[in-house]
């Protein structure tokens, strides 16, 4: 299910980048700032909040279940406080936060963030991959950020799928369907690499989610074949 509202807390270069990238995906984007003197250019109207807020206004005006919050305050302590404040008020809100390092990432997760983007680690991962595995970096980057025709998608196995009740590894996904299946996510909400010992003996059931890479047309054909559709689930984040 796609979220409809983006709540972005923090008025800085991170929030600018987030707005730029997600404005086409949300029907409603709300940008909040701690500083009342801030002004916006080419951005949604700025709203103000303070950390002791009880969020009653948001509670009334926003469908929390269909919203996603981005906590991007530059001060780590404030960002953690904001996250804990949002989580204590909104149990169902999906919260994404940024952190400068691993230590604050752990604190943010403890404070209730669903996903934390550790800036230092992510940046250094990108740099290392660019240097050490330039080809795979480029291919993954193109797949992930849709700069080529290759796409990555989450596809759910339908009730009438022809693969139902078959062993996962017994099917030659790559040759037969023109797509590459990287992993499968089953009922325990953990995704498993297709050749992991757990996934190896997995019998395909309706409801399983396959993470596939392929060209858009091939993915569509594959979806039709397994009687499925693109699938988004927010309740899990781990591999």
């Amino acid at each position: 299910m796609t979220k409809t509202t983006a709540l972005i807390f923090g008025h800085n270069k991170y929030s600018h980048e987030i707005v730029r990238n997600v404005k086409d995906k949300y029907s409603n984007i709300r940008l909040f700032s701690l500083d009342e003197n801030n002004k916006t250019e080419n951005l949604p109207e700025l709203e103000y909040f303070d950390l002791s807020d009880k969020w009653t206004e948001i509670q009334k005006s926003v469908d929390i279940k269909n919203s996603m919050a981005f906590c991007v305050l530059e001060d780590t302590a404030e960002n953690i406080f904001l996250t804990i404040s949002l989580r204590s008020n909104f149990k169902d809100l999906t919260i994404i936060a940024i952190s400068s390092n691993k230590e604050s990432a752990n604190k943010l997760l403890m404070a209730g963030a669903n996903k934390v983007i550790p800036l230092t680690e992510t940046t250094s991962d990108i740099i290392t991959n660019m240097l050490e595995k330039p080809i795979s970096h480029k291919v993954l980057h193109d797949i992930l950020y849709e700069e080529s025709n290759l796409k990555i998608a989450q596809v759910q196995i339908g009730e009438e799928s022809e693969f139902k009740d078959e062993q996962l590894t017994s099917i030659d996904w790559t040759r037969y369907n023109g797509i590459v299946v990287l992993s499968v996510m089953h009922e325990d909400m953990k995704s498993e690499f297709i050749y992991s010992s757990k996934a190896k003996h997995h019998i395909i059931k309706p409801g399983d989610v396959l993470i596939v890479v392929g060209f858009e047309k091939d993915i569509q054909n594959f979806e039709n074949k397994i009687r499925s559709r693109r699938y988004v689930n927010w309740s899990h984040w781990s591999w």
């Binding site: 796609t2 979220k3 997600v22 995906k25 949300y26 996603m68 996903k115 992930l144 990555i152 998608a153 989450q154 990287l182 992993s183 996510m185 995704s191 989610v209 993470i211 693109r230 988004v232 689930n233 927010w234 899990h236 984040w237 781990s238 591999w239």
Partner: peptide, 9 residues
């Protein structure tokens, strides 16, 4: 936003 699990992968 679009594919959290795929992104994680």
């Amino acid at each position: 936003i679009g594919k959290p699990v795929a992104f994680e992968v």
